[in-house]
Simulated scan of single mutants.
Amino acid sequence: MSYSHTATRCCFLLGLAVALTSISPACRADDTSPTPRAPAAKISFTKATQAPPSAVTMDRRGNLYIADPENGQVILMYPDGSQVLFAMGLRTPTGLAVDARGRLYVAEGSHGTIQCICPNGTKTLVAEGLSRPTGIAVDRDGNLTVACPGNGSIARIKGVGAVVEDAL
Rank of each mutant, 00 (worst) to 15 (best):
T21E: 15
S22R: 15
S22V: 15
S24C: 11
A26H: 08
A26V: 14
C27G: 02
R28E: 14
R28K: 10
R28N: 10
D30S: 12
D31S: 14
D31Y: 10
T32V: 05
T32D: 10
S33Y: 09
P34H: 02
P34Y: 02
T35K: 14
P36V: 03
R37C: 03
P39F: 04
P39Q: 06
P39Y: 05
A40K: 07
A41W: 14
S44C: 12
F45H: 02
T46E: 12
K47Q: 13
K47I: 01
K47D: 15
A48F: 09
A48G: 06
T49P: 01
A51G: 06
P52V: 02
P53H: 11
A55P: 13
A55N: 07
V56S: 11
M58E: 14
D59L: 03
R61G: 15
G62T: 11
N63I: 10
L64C: 04
L64H: 06
Y65R: 05
Y65D: 10
I66L: 15
D68K: 06
N71Q: 15
N71S: 14
G72S: 10
Q73L: 12
V74S: 07
V74Y: 07
M77G: 00
Y78A: 14
D80I: 00
G81D: 05
G81T: 01
S82Q: 06
S82K: 04
S82V: 00
Q83Y: 01
Q83K: 07
Q83V: 00
L85A: 07
L85R: 13
L85D: 03
F86Q: 04
M88F: 05
G89I: 10
R91G: 10
R91F: 09
T92Q: 13
P93R: 03
P93G: 02
T94I: 01
T94P: 03
T94N: 15
A97T: 03
A97R: 05
V98F: 03
V98M: 12
D99T: 02
D99L: 02
A100F: 09
A100Y: 10
G102K: 03
G102N: 02
G102T: 02
L104H: 07
Y105C: 04
A107W: 05
E108V: 00
G109W: 08
G109Q: 05
S110K: 11
S110A: 14
H111K: 04
H111M: 06
G112K: 03
G112D: 09
G112Q: 06
G112S: 08
T113A: 15
T113Y: 07
Q115Y: 05
Q115H: 09
C116V: 13
C118W: 00
P119Y: 11
G121P: 12
G121R: 12
G121V: 01
T122V: 06
T122N: 12
T124A: 14
T124M: 09
L125C: 06
L125P: 09
A127D: 11
E128S: 08
G129T: 02
L130Y: 05
L130Q: 04
S131V: 00
S131C: 07
R132S: 11
P133H: 04
G135R: 09
G135Q: 10
I136C: 04
A137C: 06
A137S: 04
A137K: 03
A137T: 01
V138H: 07
V138T: 03
D139I: 00
D139S: 00
D139H: 00
R140S: 09
D141Q: 01
D141S: 00
D141W: 00
G142T: 04
N143Y: 02
N143G: 00
T145R: 13
V146K: 03
